[in-house]
């Protein structure tokens, strides 16, 4: 069963990090509104393979909005026109027959292109390795219910922890800042009693690493919150700033 939408795609093609890229136009037809955006790309790739051309490389894995791997900039918006969804959850019913759709990779200094629509987001992992954890070795833990945590705090911490590390916030920010991502992790841990022991160091070293990776600075444009598929709130950035200021003052002493 296929559908009846015909579309024109303009897709960023770039052989590798060294080569220059360009937008290439491809028509696709018989697209069903029930297809996801990535399934539409499957159709395009199948077509390219049949024509003995190279398919478009793009990142994806879970295809249900949780792994954070998919990352397309669609018609000028990270993850496309719908709010609160990832590219894999965007369905073709959000488009109309005859549309032209421009698809580009994440653009950010800290996310170099690997090929076509695939970028390198390993900077995020390096930031986490600088403090996005609680230092507890396996076997050190006490009984889980020995530490009651108010539901409100647990829920808020969970909301921050829902970040999927996709990088849409960075891609959408004119400064290429990673503040929303970093603040989500800092907040998750800052809201929990377990996270207190290392709170000071954590925020400082994560922010330092963020700067070192070449992410821009945050000028509070709020664009990141709008594009975040998981609704990570700007409140987290405010919390990070508080934590950072506090930690810096204490550090000076």
């Amino acid at each position: 069963m296929s559908g009846n939408m015909n579309l024109t795609l303009k897709v960023w093609r770039q052989k590798n990090a060294e080569k220059k890229g360009e937008l290439v136009t491809y028509p696709v037809s018989n697209i069903s509104p029930d297809m996801s955006f990535l399934e539409m790309f499957d159709v395009l790739n199948e077509q390219l393979i049949t024509e003995n051309k190279e398919p478009v490389a793009f990142d994806h894995d879970c295809r249900e909005g949780i792994c954070g791997m998919c990352s397309m900039h669609i018609n000028g918006r990270a993850h496309g026109p719908k709010d609160a969804v990832t590219t894999c959850q965007l369905h073709m019913r959000s488009f109309s027959d005859g549309d032209t759709i421009v698809v580009e990779p994440w653009r950010a200094a800290a996310f170099p292109v690997i090929k076509d629509l695939v970028v390198d987001r390993s900077a995020f992992d390096r930031i986490i390795s600088k403090g996005g954890y609680i230092s507890v070795n396996t076997g050190n833990a006490q009984d889980a219910n020995n530490l009651p945590i108010p539901k409100i705090d647990a829920d808020k911490s969970f909301e921050a922890a829902a970040c999927i590390g996709c990088g849409a916030c960075v891609a959408t920010c004119k400064n290429g800042s990673a503040m929303l991502f970093v603040s989500a992790k800092v907040s998750q841990l800052a809201l929990l009693p377990q996270g207190q022991a290392e709170a000071k160091q954590r925020v400082i070293s994560m922010v330092n690493q963020m700067d070192e990776e070449g992410f821009g600075s945050c000028t509070n444009t709020g664009a990141c919150e709008v594009e975040c598929p998981k609704g990570i709130s700007l409140e987290n950035i405010a919390r990070l700033n508080r934590e950072f200021t506090l930690a810096s003052i204490l550090e000076e002493k």
């Binding site: 954890y133 609680i134 507890v136 396996t138 076997g139 050190n140 833990a141 006490q142 009984d143 889980a144 219910n145 530490l147 009651p148 945590i149 108010p150 539901k151 647990a154 829920d155 911490s157 969970f158 922890a161 998750q188 841990l189 929990l192 377990q194 996270g195």
Partner: peptide
């Protein structure tokens, strides 16, 4: 469960703060 909670995994809780 003990290990995960110690790591800061925000598992669902009741109003009294218990898991």
């Amino acid at each position: 469960i003990d290990q995960c909670v110690a790591q800061g995994v925000p598992l669902a809780r009741e109003y009294g703060g218990m898991l």
